[in-house]
Design a binder for these strands. Structure first.
Lengths: 224, 224
DNA sequence: ATTACTAGCCAACGAGTAT
DNA sequence: TATACTCGTTGGCTAGTAA
């Protein structure tokens, strides 16, 4: 059932050019002819690729009159950050990095999920950690959003999902990390869109051990 | 005359897989069938691409009996590091980094080249620096070779080449950097193979200012 | 077993053009 | 001006098979 992520070669090049041209803006007003020039293809082909990418959910378009405003969707960003992460791994660059953020209160959901037995067994086996039943929620600083996207795009450690009587629990992606020297792990739902709030687990109660309160700044260090 | 570097889409995917499978080894013994499985293409196509990449100088092959040992050439590495650098720039990741190395004596060539007027004019305009006539040579630590390849692959600041009566002087690629807070610039011949000795220029005589002698360790910091 | 030649096919392309 | 449809062509693919 798990579909193998195929590197979307067809759209990769033009997507890269769009991202480059966008710079720090969120949308880009560009004609298919300009894109054709930038990519070295024909206007017709650029137009066709744009249509296809829109259908595939890689980009969004707002057409106003004869012009189009293009933005890149989360799915499109995943392609770019995924490729970057893959190259980082292959070339062995940027193995250690860190993300800064602010402690905040979660909704208490973390505690519920983390405590499920099938997850616990895997946390123990794959992370060598029996987590304290609860997660530390950290809102990522805006400056480190890009770093988070980079980490998210990496393979990480797969914690498999499972089904209980009533419902299914999705797969989780984990990354070992540390806060002020305390070993912990960042966990994401395996399939999810980008969120700027991290959930951190550890074998101990991080808030107490590190004396953390809502609003405190923390630096989460990764060695991947 | 300057050929536009075309992103070699055709070979990129299989090259990535080869690099991944190689890991830290220098060569890889692999059959076209295995490569086909890893890339999701037919054995015949993998074989054909390998032949083409060999002809293009992207990989080297040693055929022993029925087996082949593949290695990636400098030109092949340029494709991978180039792609990584491009994505880094587009996504705005890894803007600051550093390279460590050891000071060593150059051959005195640097002094000769750097002092040429057309270079000096551009150093002043583009780097805002009238360099001391000579270069600091730094042998890069093995650990930082990958970081150097990454920087090399970036666009940098182009110092154009020129012709004098007797010969031509090639284009130079420069990167602003600093050593212990002193502004300087790393310069490469624009077209050259990988070398692990850096040439650094600065407006002052770095050896004296920083009290450097052969064998001393230095950290060169980049903000790109 | 392996590499790699040949033939045939089709997805993706450029050109022309409608809108 | 633009975007994007249709059509003819072809580069790059798979399959079969020789070496």
């Amino acid at each position: 059932m798990e579909k193998i992520e195929k590197f979307n070669e067809k759209y990769y090049h033009i997507l890269k050019v769009i991202a480059q041209k966008m710079g720090d803006e969120k949308t880009l007003r560009i004609t298919s002819g300009e894109l054709a020039l930038l990519t070295g293809m024909s206007q017709q082909n650029a137009s066709r690729l744009i249509l296809e990418m829109e259908n595939e959910g890689i980009i969004d378009r707002k057409i106003s009159g004869r012009h189009q405003n293009i933005s890149i969707t989360e799915s499109g960003l995943d392609i770019l950050y995924g490729e970057f992460a893959e190259l980082s791994q292959i070339l062995g660059i940027g193995k250690s990095t860190s993300i800064c953020g602010t402690v905040q209160s979660g909704l208490g959901e973390g505690r519920y999920y983390v405590a499920k037995k099938p997850y616990l067994i895997q946390f123990n086996e794959k992370l060598n950690m029996i987590p304290y039943p609860g997660t530390l929620n950290v809102k990522v600083d805006n400056n480190d959003e890009k770093t988070l996207r980079h980490i998210r795009a990496r393979k990480g450690i797969l914690i498999e999902g499972f089904s209980s009587d009533d419902r299914t629990y999705g797969a989780v992606k984990a990354f070992k990390c540390n806060i002020k020297g305390v070993e912990c792990a960042l966990i994401f739902p395996y399939r999810s869109i980008y969120r700027d709030v991290l959930e951190i687990i550890s074998h101990i109660y991080l808030r107490e051990k590190l004396n953390l309160e809502d609003g405190d700044s923390v630096e989460i260090k990764f060695d991947i």
